[in-house]
Design a protein around this nucleic acid. Structure first.
Lengths: 187, 187
DNA sequence: TCCATAGCCATACACCGTATGGCTGACGCT
DNA sequence: AGCGTCAGCCATACGGTGTATGGCTATGGA
């Protein structure tokens, strides 16, 4: 059906959002523009709007698909401290890989209003284990989210040594701070 | 010296940054544009560039002057938990008053690279009291900064009751979490 | 065969930050 | 008094942005 003059196949949402994510990873949030994205796809800028309602909607799509790619730790019977640690680490790695997107996310929480996503489910489960009352789950998870992302910002700002051991030691420090804090709920 | 045709007095940095801050408070970070700001000041857009090198520099100026308006708690001899609580509360109030600016700040830490600012000095002093080793001061304060601002984001996101008592109770929760966490350093 | 429509594109509009260069009038100096 | 300097402001222009509007084309179903 009147496929692009400069391409063989029609566009797909997956193609669009993956290239857009690459642009963000490479050039920050300002590195993504509908025009640049279209150029990268060998397509007219306005063609994108046949698949996506607006730039904002596109970003929402990117966030949603990216969130599904977080590797969640299994629900074994290990203590909540350890589970929280592993979940935070998985989340942390993902945030590191797509820093610009996630720091944007922090300021535009409406883009991930969906609390049904598996990562939140996992966090809720662990927080319940830690003794956080039901009514505080949402707020606590919000703060933890800000916390981990904030850690990444701090990592990026300070001139870190290239030593990965030291980085993980720093992460330990932050996680221990969170765990100690949460322990206040159950005691 | 060839004062504006449409104004009596020449522009001042204070005037520029205060009106710019108002624009940000009213319309978010996207509500501030050099053109709108100039219109608000009854001045040609390019006139601003006589006082400010770029929009980025203007934002830096706004941040710096805004930071000076935080009411710091006095250095009485009270325990560090209480001092941290009061500092966080003062900071929190200020963040609430200028939300957009501070959430922007979280993602553009280079705008406040100046660690000589009095609020950081106060935080450092309290963290030392809490037993945080010298080498961890900077990183810890970075994380705490992200933490408190993250709390504001969480506050804004969740549909809070208008009850100020409940809000302050929530804030208590967050602060207790931080304090418990920090206690891990001295023990 | 015909036509609805999916997919794409050209044009245009209003906005943005800011480079460039020119105007005006107040000041210091001779 | 005459003159040069320069602070302060402004007009124009360039390249970028998101997207509204409307038109093209080729494919699928009837």
């Amino acid at each position: 059906m009147a496929v692009s003059a400069r391409r063989g196949a029609p566009l797909t949402l997956e193609e669009i959002s993956s290239v857009a994510l690459r642009l963000i990873d490479e050039g920050g949030m300002e590195g993504l523009s509908m025009r640049k994205l279209a150029a990268e796809l060998n397509v007219n800028p306005m063609s994108l709007y046949h698949h996506v309602a607006s730039k904002e909607a596109l970003i929402g799509l990117i966030c949603a698909t990216a969130a599904h790619h977080v590797q969640l730790p299994p629900d074994d019977g290990s203590p909540w401290q350890e589970q929280l640690r592993e979940l935070a680490l998985a989340y942390y790695r993902h945030v590191r890989a797509h820093q610009s997107l996630w720091t944007y996310l922090q300021n535009h929480p409406e883009a991930v209003a969906d609390r049904q996503m598996s990562i939140w489910q996992a966090l809720y489960r662990i927080l319940r284990l830690a003794g956080v009352p039901e009514s505080e789950l949402r707020r606590t998870s919000d703060v933890l989210h800000a916390f981990v992302t904030g850690f990444v910002v701090a990592e990026t700002r300070g001139h870190l040594p290239d030593d990965p051991d030291e980085i993980s030691r720093d992460f330990d420090t932050a996680i221990r701070l969170i765990i100690h804090g949460l322990a206040g709920f159950s005691s």
